[in-house]
Amino acid sequence: MPTPPSPGYALVTGASSGIGADIAREYARRGKPLVLTARRVERLEALAAELSAQVPCVVIATDLADPAAPAKLFAETQARGLFVDTLVNNAGYGVPGRYLSADWKTHADSLQVLLTSVAHLTHLYLPAMEAAGRGRILNVASLAGLVPPTAGHTLYGATKAWLIRFSETLDQESRPRGVHVTALCPGMTYTEFHDVNGMREKVSKLPKGIWLSSADVARLGVDAVESGRTRLVTGRANKLIAGLSKYLPDRLARALLASKSKDFRDAD
């Protein structure tokens, strides 16, 4: 295999806003060329225009709810001769309400974005990283994957728990071959996420001390994967919540979280 170009590109999914856009900014600040992908091409182009003075930026519009999208994205980067040595699986969203309040197509699309596309993209890009003996995969999970379940947003916490375990297992497999895999687990973060799922009014009532900016989360996440940390929970308050969830008796932890869940979960 020919020696891959250096430095390689960082491919960031869901790069049009929020944590994804700020991860792109953080990598640009560090001099890392970028492949930016999401559905909203106008936003991607605006971000590329912002960052192109710092690093080369390639925009590829992709809807990861389409099962064919990962293979098409991979084929496009291959056709352009781009060696992706950093994969950021960030794209995602929550479906509010109880499980039966949404139709199956809505749930199927969310699973495709949150779970299947992550596994597929990783399977496509990891071989070249291992062959080159270097690579980084940053999977944006959530504190929701580490705490007891609550009613509402039924699939979100479950898929994030899967993503954390997937990341940890993959890191053990690939670290000896020079590839670090990190599960980034933010708690409440100032992004459009809660506007999209209609929860902004509810979550705005939560204490200000548990929130972080998406720029801070992005910086911490990039630091974590570059230094080889397998899992990172961002923010002291979130670390405390994750710790209590782990060490409190399961029944008590579920009861405590359920009593507060109405502040950040729509279960209707």
Rank of each mutant, 00 (worst) to 15 (best):
residue 262 K to N: 12
residue 141 A to H: 05
residue 114 L to W: 01
residue 5 P to G: 01
residue 254 R to M: 07
residue 52 S to G: 14
residue 125 Y to G: 01
residue 161 A to T: 04
residue 129 M to Y: 01
residue 222 V to H: 00
residue 244 L to S: 10
residue 163 L to Q: 10
residue 155 L to A: 15
residue 156 Y to A: 06
residue 38 A to C: 11
residue 9 Y to P: 03
residue 190 Y to G: 04
residue 178 G to D: 13
residue 186 P to C: 07
residue 104 W to P: 03
residue 159 T to Q: 08
residue 177 R to I: 00
residue 166 F to Q: 11
residue 75 A to L: 11
residue 183 A to I: 00
residue 8 G to N: 01
residue 142 S to M: 05
residue 50 E to Y: 09
residue 205 K to E: 13
residue 268 D to A: 12
residue 66 D to R: 13
residue 167 S to Y: 00
residue 19 I to N: 08
residue 74 F to M: 12
residue 226 E to R: 06
residue 207 P to F: 01
residue 261 S to H: 07
residue 45 E to V: 14
residue 42 E to H: 15
residue 198 G to Q: 04
residue 27 Y to A: 02
residue 214 S to F: 05
residue 6 S to F: 11
residue 152 G to F: 09
residue 244 L to I: 10
residue 18 G to V: 10
residue 85 D to A: 02
residue 253 A to Q: 10
residue 122 T to H: 03
residue 40 R to I: 15
residue 24 A to F: 01
residue 41 V to R: 15
residue 168 E to V: 01
residue 35 V to T: 11
residue 172 Q to R: 10
residue 124 L to T: 12
residue 114 L to F: 06
residue 47 L to F: 10
residue 87 L to Q: 01
residue 268 D to V: 13
residue 67 P to Q: 15
residue 230 T to R: 12
residue 264 F to I: 09
residue 211 W to L: 03
residue 9 Y to K: 04
residue 19 I to C: 02
residue 175 R to V: 04
residue 124 L to I: 11
residue 88 V to P: 05
residue 98 R to P: 01
residue 3 T to N: 09
residue 217 V to E: 06
residue 242 A to Y: 02
residue 161 A to G: 09
residue 163 L to P: 02
residue 156 Y to T: 05
residue 3 T to G: 02
residue 97 G to H: 02
residue 243 G to V: 10
residue 214 S to E: 07
residue 93 Y to M: 12
residue 47 L to D: 07
residue 219 R to N: 02
residue 173 E to C: 00
residue 253 A to K: 08
residue 134 R to I: 08
residue 149 P to Q: 08
residue 134 R to H: 15
residue 26 E to H: 13
residue 58 V to D: 11
residue 66 D to Y: 11
residue 261 S to M: 06
